[in-house]
Simulated scan of single mutants.
Amino acid sequence: MRYATNVRVDAPPAAVWAVLADVGGWPQWTPTVTAVETGGAGLAVGTTVTVSQPGRRPTPYTVDTLEPGRRFRWSRTAGGVRQWADHVVRPLPGSDSCEVDLTFAMEGPVGGMLGRLGAATIRRMVDTEASSPKARAERSAG
């Protein structure tokens, strides 16, 4: 199961990246995250970030890809399920705006089945997580 969405943000890419990459601040601007534990570290490959979401147990993800100012991805593997989430800020040529691309996937022997069962919730959460930094970055830029 894989779901991707993107949202145009009328704010500079650097401002959008600042919002998105401050994962400890996510509970302040998205209702899909209630707490984030980073162990005091910023985003770096190998950093473990534990995300708490409404109705779910805290989930640790390890940052496996980081392109500062542009992209980070984190992932985890447990119980036959590999989950990953990719977060990308793409500048739009000829403007001071950008797009945010978010992708969430569940893979593996159990991941596909769990992904299909939770597909509606996953889509709703990923869509909310794409529109929430848009609102915050546009307010800050405006």
Rank of each mutant, 00 (worst) to 15 (best):
V7S: 05
T62D: 02
S140E: 15
W84D: 03
D10C: 06
L117A: 11
G112L: 10
A120F: 05
A85F: 06
P133V: 13
A78V: 09
V126A: 07
T128L: 04
D10H: 05
P91E: 05
V36L: 15
S97N: 11
S97R: 04
R56P: 02
A11G: 12
A135G: 08
L20C: 14
G115S: 06
T65V: 11
R2N: 14
M125D: 05
D101M: 12
A105Q: 05
A11V: 12
S131H: 03
T48F: 12
R136T: 12
P31K: 07
D127P: 02
P58D: 12
A85K: 07
E138Q: 09
V49A: 09
R56Q: 14
L117R: 06
A120Q: 09
A119D: 02
A35V: 10
Q53A: 13
A135H: 12
T121H: 04
V16K: 04
R8H: 11
W74S: 02
V7L: 07
G118C: 09
Q53W: 12
R70D: 02
S131M: 12
W84R: 06
S95W: 05
V100P: 00
G79W: 11
T59C: 12
A11R: 10
T77A: 11
T121F: 02
P91F: 01
V7P: 00
L117V: 11
R116F: 04
S140V: 08
V110G: 02
P13S: 05
A105K: 09
E107G: 02
V16C: 13
A4D: 15
A4C: 15
L20S: 07
P60L: 14
G69H: 03
A119G: 02
